[in-house]
C-alpha cells in the first residue's frame, strides 16, 4: 500500500490500495469511569488490527509526553466504549461528550465527514447522542436531538438481549450473516426517547434514512416488551446510525459476544462464532476494502 504522510501528527496514511489488517489503527477512547475499553480493543486485536486504548487527554493535554500524544487522524476508526464515564452522575455520557466537544469537535466532524467508522457502545452511544453525532439527520447537530433515558424498570438491567438487524447494509452489519443476533445489555439509562409529540415523525425519518439498525426482539425474533426490550425503548430501538451509515450507536455490547462461550445459551447450543465477531469483522473488512 502507499503510505503517505499527511502531516506531522498524521501517521494514518490515506486510502490507496487495500489496507493490510495490521495497518488498520483503531482508537478506543477512555476517560475515568469508561470500563469496557479493554474488551472492546481486544475484539479488534483478535482480528489482527492495531487497536489501542487512548485516554482523551492524549489528544490535547500539555502534560502528556510526546511519545504518548495522539491525534484523531492517527486512526481509521474510533470507538467510544461502555462504562460510566466520569461517573455518569448527571445525564449519562454528558460529561464525556462535553469534554470531547471542547477538545475534539472539529477533528471528529472531519473524521466522520471523511467516512471513517465511529462506534458508540452503551455509554458510548449516550456520548454520541449527547454530541449530536446521532441521529444527525442534517449532519452533527448543535444540541442533542434525542436522549437515552432511565429504564422503565428504574434500575440497572444486565441481561441477554436479542436484536433484529433492520439494516444489514451498513459497514457494521454487513458481515453479521444473520437476521437476529444476541448482544447482551447492561445499563440503567438506555431508553430511546424522542422529543415529546414528535416521536412518529422521528421514527418515520429514521426509517426513511434506514437509520434504525437494531431493534429488540424476543429469542424467537418477534418484537416484544420487557424483559426482551430491557429499557422500554420507543419502537424497540436498540441501535441507530447516521444517515451515511458510518456512525453507529447501540446500547447492547457486541464486544461481550465475541466468543461462542460468551453466549448465555452456549452450553445448550454451540455456535462456531459469537455474534459479536461478525460485527467487528464488518468494520475491519470495510477498512480493508475502502478505496
Amino acid at each position: 500500500m502507499r503510505w503517505i504522510q499527511l502531516g506531522e501528527m498524521d501517521c494514518r496514511g490515506i486510502w490507496g490500495d487495500d489496507m493490510e489488517r495490521e495497518d488498520i489503527r483503531v482508537a478506543v477512547v477512555r476517560i475515568e469511569g469508561t470500563n469496557c475499553e479493554r474488551e472492546t480493543a481486544l475484539a479488534f486485536k483478535r482480528l489482527e488490527v492495531f487497536a489501542e486504548e487512548v485516554h482523551l487527554k492524549q489528544f490535547y493535554s500539555d502534560m502528556i509526553r510526546d511519545e504518548d500524544k495522539r491525534s484523531l487522524h492517527d486512526y481509521h476508526a474510533v470507538v467510544f466504549p461502555g462504562g460510566f464515564s466520569a461517573g455518569d452522575y448527571i445525564r449519562a455520557g454528558a460529561i464525556f461528550s462535553a469534554r470531547v466537544r471542547s477538545v475534539l469537535r472539529k477533528d471528529l466532524k472531519k473524521f466522520i465527514g471523511e467516512g471513517w467508522p465511529v462506534l458508540g457502545i452503551c455509554n458510548g452511544f449516550q456520548v454520541l447522542v449527547e454530541l449530536g453525532a446521532l441521529p444527525a439527520f442534517d449532519g452533527i447537530s448543535e444540541k442533542p436531538e434525542m436522549a437515552l433515558g432511565i429504564n422503565d424498570s428504574s434500575r440497572f438491567e444486565c441481561r441477554p438481549t436479542f436484536l433484529k438487524v433492520e439494516n444489514q447494509k451498513i459497514l457494521f452489519t454487513r458481515n453479521l450473516g444473520k437476521n437476529v443476533v444476541m448482544f447482551p445489555s447492561a445499563h440503567a439509562e438506555g431508553k430511546v426517547i424522542f422529543p415529546s409529540g414528535r416521536e412518529e415523525e422521528y421514527i418515520e425519518r429514521l426509517k426513511e434514512n434506514n437509520q434504525i439498525v437494531f431493534r429488540y426482539v424476543d429469542r424467537n425474533g418477534d418484537y416484544a416488551g420487557y424483559p426482551w426490550n430491557p429499557n422500554g425503548s420507543i419502537y424497540n430501538i436498540a441501535g441507530i446510525c447516521n444517515p451515511e451509515g458510518n456512525v453507529l450507536g447501540l446500547m447492547p455490547h457486541p464486544e461481550r459476544a465475541f466468543h461462542p462461550v460468551s453466549h448465555p445459551e452456549w452450553t445448550r447450543n454451540q455456535q462456531k462464532d459469537g455474534d459479536g465477531k461478525g460485527f467487528f469483522e464488518g468494520i475491519v473488512s470495510y477498512l480493508e476494502k475502502k478505496v
Partner: peptide, 25 residues
C-alpha cells in the same frame, strides 16, 4: 439482585450466575 449487577463487564464471564434458556434462567 443478580440482574442489577453487571456480571458480564470485562467480557470474560463464561458461565454466568444465571444458567439456562434466556428468559427462563
Amino acid at each position: 439482585a443478580i440482574r442489577q449487577y453487571d456480571h458480564e463487564v470485562r467480557a470474560s464471564t463464561v458461565l454466568k450466575p444465571l444458567n439456562g434458556i434466556a428468559g427462563w434462567e
